[in-house]
């Protein structure tokens, strides 16, 4: 009986300790919050994450040897773009170029285009520079910029590596439908890019 009472008391204490409180998931009070902020920033921006995945799939279509160059070039360009944002003003037509890249990458993927290596690496570099610049822009003074850019660069490397690896493994599977499925996803990305590009031209006040 006494043991049961102790167990009940222990369970009660444990339940009280487990009372729900705020999770503080965004770690605003810690130094690492800026790292996670930088890592999450591109993931919440569809205009960045969509062309990343399309670029990874396009790189996979070129084969593993060529795709490795993209995995190396993209995060470095992302970091360079972020650092540039701290020193120089935004280039003109930055937004249009960004959306144009979504459409161009999607179209190349939909066509399963065989892209020369310099063009592929150049596309990765331009996309990385531009998105890195967009990530580094307008950071509040309280943000640790180095941590923020480190987070954005790390997530760029992780997403590009995982997406390229997944696309390569997917293409190596059995079934002729696999490249078609990736090409269809490219046509989706291109369609989104074309329409959002049109929005910039025809209804800029609505964006």
């Amino acid at each position: 009986m006494r043991t049961k009472a102790r167990l009940l008391a222990g369970a009660t204490v444990a339940a009280v300790l487990a009372l729900p409180t705020a999770a503080h998931a965004h770690l605003v009070d810690t130094r690492l919050g800026d790292f996670y902020g930088g890592a999450l920033h591109p993931l919440t921006e569809l205009q960045q994450i969509l062309p990343w995945i399309a670029l990874a799939a396009l790189a996979a279509f070129q084969g593993a040897r060529r795709a490795r160059w993209v995995i190396a070039a993209f995060p470095l360009a992302l970091l360079a773009g972020g650092l540039a944002a701290l020193a120089v003003p935004a280039p003109p037509y930055e937004s249009l170029v960004g959306i144009g890249l979504v459409a161009a990458t999607g179209l190349a993927l939909a066509a399963a285009a065989r892209v020369p290596l310099p063009v592929l690496v150049g596309l990765a570099a331009v996309m990385g520079l531009l998105h890195g610049f967009q990530n580094g822009q307008g950071l509040p003074a309280s943000t640790d910029r180095l941590l923020f850019l480190a987070g954005a660069t790390a997530i760029g490397y992780v997403v590009m590596t995982l997406a390229t690896g997944a696309a390569l493994a997917f293409l190596r599977g059995v079934g002729g439908w696999r490249p078609i499925a990736l090409r269809a996803s490219g046509s989706w990305v291109a369609a989104v890019g074309i329409m959002v590009l049109g929005l910039q031209f025809f209804a800029p006040t609505a964006s």
């Binding site: 046509s187 989706w188 369609a191 989104v192 074309i194 329409m195 049109g198 929005l199 031209f201 025809f202």
Partner: peptide, 16 residues
């Protein structure tokens, strides 16, 4: 694959 791409063109006409 063709449909979304052409649909985007239709979307542009609507936006314009």
């Amino acid at each position: 694959i063709t449909f979304p791409l052409v649909m985007a063109v239709g979307g542009l006409i609507g936006l314009a």
